[in-house]
């Protein structure tokens, strides 16, 4: 079996698993298909777990009526802002601390403490500081993203090969050139390793922030639905969020492929 065939085969099975889960879900929650096993009322299963057909119908209504676009836009904008601000500041602070040992030694306990702190708990405070609009969600996302990127950059700079560094010095690189031509490229590869994580966390920041207090966004939609025990809408919201998280992740992969051409991928051969 050649590799293309194998990957198609794999894809087929992945789709089948998804379909299987949905079918099981539908059958298990249908009031008439199966006799009630656990609940005394046949409609209870559907009430607590929702039904996939209903969920998909809800998603369809959201998109066809256009009512979700505003919320989605808000959530995605919060995510992207948190991601960009968190990554940029993590990169900057990481480079700074990695290159000035005194500052790093001085701030070390505070950084450890801030990283150890469950930062989601900051959401209510950010709500007070920045209001219930987008800013508080972005702030929460930034605190989540910042540390991931920061630690990776810090590590990346410290693990720059001594030989490469010495070589660049011998070739005449000054401090600024070392930063630009050695430290930053090296740190970038570490940042990219963390980008998948940080995109996910930026998303978490946005949605959790919305969930804790907002007037728009997909997190707000989910909160509203939960308030009226509309489990189908909750699941529909989760489904939409998951789909967009996957899209963001895919975009990061694309960017990574373009920018990291210099990195060896395992088993890479050249096509002629």
């Amino acid at each position: 079996m050649n590799s293309r065939k194998a990957s198609r085969f794999l894809r087929l099975w992945q789709v089948l698993i998804l379909a299987g889960v949905f079918v099981f879900w539908q059958v298990a929650t249908d009031p008439e298909l199966l006799p009630p096993i656990y609940f005394d009322n046949p409609n209870k299963a559907a009430f607590f777990f929702g039904q996939p057909l209903e969920v998909l119908a809800r998603v369809w209504v959201w998109f066809s009526s256009g009512s979700i676009y505003g919320h989605l836009w808000v959530t995605l904008l919060e995510t992207v802002l948190a991601f960009v601000i968190g990554t940029a500041s993590g990169l900057g602070v990481g480079l700074w601390l990695a290159l000035s040992p005194t500052a790093a030694a001085l701030l070390d306990p505070y950084i450890k403490a801030m990283n150890a702190m469950p930062r989601v708990i900051l959401a209510p405070i950010f709500g007070v500081w920045f209001g219930l609009g987008m800013a508080s969600k972005v702030a929460l996302g930034v605190t989540l993203v910042f540390f991931i990127v920061f630690f990776n950059v810090y590590q990346g700079v410290r693990e720059v090969s001594h030989t490469v560094l010495a070589n660049a010095r011998m070739l005449g690189a000054g401090e600024r050139q070392l930063l630009r031509h050695v430290y930053i490229p090296s740190a970038t590869s570490w940042v990219f390793a963390s980008l998948h994580n940080s995109v996910g966390l930026a998303f978490v920041g946005a949605v959790v922030g919305e969930y804790l207090g907002s007037s728009e966004g997909v997190g707000y939609l989910i909160l509203q639905a939960e308030g009226t025990f509309d489990i189908n809408s909750v699941f529909a919201g989760i489904l939409v969020l998951t789909a967009f998280a996957l899209v963001l992740d895919w975009l990061v992969t694309l960017a990574e492929r373009r920018l990291m051409v210099w990195q060896p991928r395992s088993g890479e051969t050249e096509r002629i």
Binding site: S161, T163, V164, N167, H181, V182, P185, S186, W262
Partner: peptide, 8 residues
């Protein structure tokens, strides 16, 4: 050992 800049 390897001293080339791998990103160039």
């Amino acid at each position: 050992t390897e001293a080339l800049l791998p990103w160039r």
